[in-house]
Nucleic acid binder design. Structure first.
Lengths: 197, 197
DNA sequence: TTTTAAATTGTCATATTTGCAAATTTACTA
DNA sequence: TAGTAAATTTGCAAATATGACAATTTAAAA
């Protein structure tokens, strides 16, 4: 009975457009007009599916948190059986990991507004901590004889190197930056290996 | 004759307020009202001193570029005679280096809009490259027997670790993050020392 | 074909943002 | 004190953004 629901699909499309607009224009610059244009729908549909502006922000936060978390999980799940840390760096600093929607920019924009939207703060801290932990766990597993604190520091360095590069991708930086980032991240792995000698 | 000029002072005040608003609300969310309120002046004064919106953005870009460059220079100039790399990390990851106005957020926001403001792209790439080079130069000087490529990779890692942390400061992250960042950055220095053995 | 639930569009009032061009005030000088 | 150059304020029009609700269209089921 009735027309089939597009709620999930449309909601996802709109949130994806929203994310992109926030990355480009900032949270307060992501107007409903822009989002609607980016999503290819009428402005009034945003309200229909996501509610008013405050509710839209809430939905965006939830969306960004769950998507980023699942991307972290997928990244870990995609690792091969051997040489996992190296493969991790290949993902993070390969052409795929970085760029796409420059999602770290969205995180930065939301984080900058976290005093107005407290849920953004807790959600984003959770997201980032989860990535720290996931990477650290990988390193601890692959370097079982190395001090865990050192592994966590390495994970921290690798994650934030990725964050910085990703948030600068829209500058269309020299290709060399990705290599340098890859190399700098690799230093952390080598340092862990050094401590075994 | 005539009233004394406040051009420089006012211009600087307004640009500082502008910077803060861009960090908080994004480039397109930094409305003239917000900027004026932040600077404690009437909106129309912005126009008087900086021109219309496009000209304001131009001025902001120029301001951010020159300020960030001079901060880089000051940082280098503030280093002691010995143990300069360690001192560098103390500055970058001390309570002073990070936070303040979270100026990296402004860089991110401007970078995200660099397709609309081409001067932002060139200016920001210049700023970042200059910091890369300044830090790399320090490392090369302090580790003269180490491969320069390795020094540059270390500099790259340290700079972008700083960028990421600074752009997340508004989330009011756990204090531990600064320690972890400091530790991760230190890994780069230790790695350079290792290669001497 | 009629019913039905949901998508989609249309419209209008209100509030915010921006641009521009006066008027007005202020602080110094001759 | 009068002149003057600059700061500062005032006022208004145009453009844009938001909220809320009514009207219409669409795709499936009965």
């Amino acid at each position: 009975m009735g027309r089939p629901s597009l709620q999930e699909q449309r909601t996802t499309e709109i949130l994806a457009a929203y994310e992109l607009c926030v990355a480009r224009h900032g949270l307060d610059g992501a107007t409903q007009e822009r989002i609607a244009a980016e999503a290819g729908v009428k402005r009034t549909l945003l309200r229909h599916y996501l509610g008013n502006k405050d509710e839209m922000v809430e939905a965006l936060i939830k969306h960004v948190v769950t998507r980023f978390n699942s991307e972290t999980d997928q990244m870990i799940a995609a690792l091969p059986k051997t040489d996992r840390p190296k493969a991790l760096l290949d993902i993070l600093f390969g052409p795929l990991g970085v760029s796409e929607t420059a999602s770290v920019l969205t995180i930065n924009a939301l984080g900058a507004a976290s005093d107005r939207f407290p849920k953004a703060r807790t959600g984003l801290l959770e997201v980032i901590t989860r990535m720290h932990d996931a990477v650290a766990e990988e390193l601890i597993r692959d370097y079982p004889r190395v001090d865990k604190t050192a592994c966590r520091a390495a994970a921290f360095g690798i994650c934030h190197l990725y964050f910085s590069i990703d948030s600068l991708m829209m500058l269309d930086p020299p290709e060399d930056w990705l290599n340098q980032a890859r190399q700098a991240a690799n230093v952390h792995l080598q340092a862990l290996e050094e401590t075994l000698k």
